[in-house]
Amino acid sequence: MTRYLARRVALSLVTLFLLATLVFVIVNVLPSDPGRRIAGPFAPQETVDALNERLGANDPLLQQYGRLLKNTVTFDFGDSFKYGKPVKSVLFPALARSAKLVFLALLLTVPISILAGIVAARRRNTLADRLIVTVGLASSSIPEFVSGVTLQFLLGVQLGWLPVLALAPSDAGIGTQFKHLLLPALALVAVYFGYIARITRAGAIQALDADYTRTAVMKGLDNRRVLTRHVMRNALQPTVAVVGTQIGYLFSGLIGLELIFAYPGLGSLIVGAAGDKDYPLLEAGVLLVGIIYMICTLLADLLIAWMNPRARLVGEFA
């Protein structure tokens, strides 16, 4: 396991290096004149040139690339062009907000989806199974900003049950904060329930049909123990893999949801930084999301490796 872990972490570092390179390419593909961007369209050219000089925008590409790699290691990207303060002080509050939403969404989605998936697998081809699969497919094919605005209108405005804005007052306790996050989290439940339930269902069906399950049943173990010890362990591997890969997206992809709930998370921040050509913030944001993605897939792989020792042999690519 230690050797597997070491290899897996080393590979992640290689990926991180590649990611930094990709980010560098992206930033240099975008039309770039940070000095003009900061000074505004009316500033004299001398001011712009001086700014570009100070920001190092005129340095040779190779030198700029080296600087980005160094920044990646130290995670110090200097000041954001747009906000005029250190990138970290802009990025981390947004990261914290995103993390809260992702945590609550997973907390609500994962258990209920896994339960539904297993129920569907055990009652294959019954009405319950068909209902879970079809409703899941339907709700997961509607973009989260549509389900979000619908829930906001029905539960927030019409019925007045839940706060319509996701951001709680600054002095609010953790309970109030989660209450405010409930509506966007429910919108994510709508999107992910069907997906995770179907993955679990498929994994469970495979595990239920597998030889080791039959052996266990023949050995005379009772149903519950078979389910927990043998089936769950094998059935949940695809679920773990998929949840692991989706977390990165939840951190960076919820622009629509963040917009309609006025909840400025990482997704809006990165898209905004790209639009504003705020390169330090953009680079740091993309790398941060990349690191989150890698950590999550790594954890997922380790979990799978723990659940199924065989996976350690080929498992670097869950």
């Binding site: 290689v14 390179t21 992206i26 990165g248 992809g253 898209v271 999301v289 993605y293």
Partner: peptide, 23 residues
């Protein structure tokens, strides 16, 4: 190629899309 794919998948989807379209 695996490492490249992994790196690509770790870039926010919307960013790739916006990048392509803005260029």
């Amino acid at each position: 190629i695996s490492r490249f794919i992994e790196a690509m998948l770790s870039i926010p989807v919307v960013l790739i899309a916006l990048l392509i379209i803005s260029v």
